[in-house]
Simulated assay, not measured.
Amino acid sequence: MSTPAPGSVLRGAVDLSSLRNRPQTPAPAPASADAPAGGATPLVFDVTDATFGDVLELSRTVPVVIDLWAEWCGPCKQLSPVLEKVVTELGGRLVLAKVDVDANPQLAQGFRAQSIPMVLALVAGQPVPLFTGAVPEQQVRDVFAQLLQLAAQHGVTGMVPVEATPPAEAPGDEPLPPLHAEAFAAIEEGDYARAVAAYEKALVEDPRDADARAGLGQVQLLARVQDADLQAARAAAAASPTGIEAQFLVADLDVVGGHVEDAFGRLLELFAALPADERAPVRERLLELFGLIGDDDARVIRARTRLASLLF
């Protein structure tokens, strides 16, 4: 899994222009190097489409790491605690802003989130790409160290008072079962085939293991898009409107990037366009993605309703 380090100059890798002048609701107040101990900026906080302008302003004082995630994304849940731990240990030299891509589609689009977890930074209002995917803790530390050097070159050296962050609660989660732990370790290394094998073995041992089944689906999705190029995939899909594999790849990329409704719409249109005897793989892929997102999700409910209407 490639992990580009921060460049020697700030690069406008994403288009934030549509978000800079949006009406704002209050977000964490900017901090400075000599901010009082009672400052209001926490080290870790959520950011939304509406509060992003304040985060841009904050990045002129202290580097802001952006974590793009989603509730259904297994690797996101693995990476986020690592990010929070490293940011906390840096004692206020960085802050972490978390973006739920499902709830904040404009930010996801502005950051060109082709897959998640996706991590970048803001320094003096400018985006700096960091890495995509769940990476090992040491790699996070190395990238953040380079980010701090880059920020210092641009005069962004403020700090957030560590007293502003409430103490972390003691972890209460039980240790992962061995095969689940093996799968997570493989995901960290980008070895999705080994993760798939671990989850499949867990399901052989316990076919009712819902966590293993969910993890297997997520890793299989990540494996399918691991080396995919979004622009090339979209071009191939446009050239072959009823090409099942071409449409599948773009749908997978859309799901990983948080564009769930686009993925469902693409596959439902493909289902409707195909002859009845060629539809089975599309239905199976839709059902697989429904399971990943969750049966109670409103987008899944709408897509299931449309699929049923096409079937009968």
Rank of each mutant, 00 (worst) to 15 (best):
V282T: 14
V256L: 13
Q226F: 05
D297P: 11
I244T: 04
R266D: 08
R279D: 08
L253A: 08
D277H: 11
P275F: 05
P275Y: 06
E278W: 04
L289R: 10
E278C: 01
I301T: 09
A272E: 11
H259G: 02
D277F: 00
I301G: 05
T242C: 06
A236S: 13
A263F: 02
R266H: 03
A298Y: 13
A236Q: 14
A239I: 12
V250I: 11
E284R: 15
F248D: 02
V225Y: 01
L221N: 09
L289C: 06
E288N: 13
D295Y: 03
A223G: 10
L289A: 06
A276W: 00
D296I: 04
Q220G: 12
A236F: 03
R283H: 07
G265C: 07
E288M: 13
A276C: 03
R279M: 02
I293L: 12
I244M: 00
R285Q: 14
L274W: 00
Q231V: 13
D252Y: 02
F248K: 07
F271L: 15
Q220C: 10
A273L: 03
A298D: 15
A276K: 12
A263G: 12
R279P: 05
G294H: 09
Q226V: 06
D277Q: 14
F290G: 12
R234F: 00
L270C: 09
D229E: 12
A273Q: 09
I301S: 12
S240H: 15
P241V: 08
A238Y: 09
G243V: 10
A246H: 14
I301H: 09
L287G: 07
L221I: 10
E284M: 08
V282L: 02
A251H: 00
A276I: 13
Q231W: 01
V300N: 04
E278R: 15
A276L: 08
A272V: 10
G258M: 01
V225W: 01
P241C: 01
F271Y: 15
L267V: 00
D254Y: 02
F271E: 14
A235I: 11
A298M: 14
D262Q: 14
F248P: 00
D229R: 05
A223Y: 06
L274A: 09
E245W: 05
D229T: 11
A223S: 13
T242Y: 01
E278V: 08
A239C: 08
A235K: 13
P275C: 06
A237V: 01
F264Y: 14
L292Q: 13
D262F: 00
D277S: 11
Q231R: 15
V250D: 01
L289D: 06
A233N: 13
A233K: 14
L268Y: 00
F248L: 04
L222Q: 15
I293P: 01
A233C: 09
A228Q: 11
R279N: 07
L221Q: 04
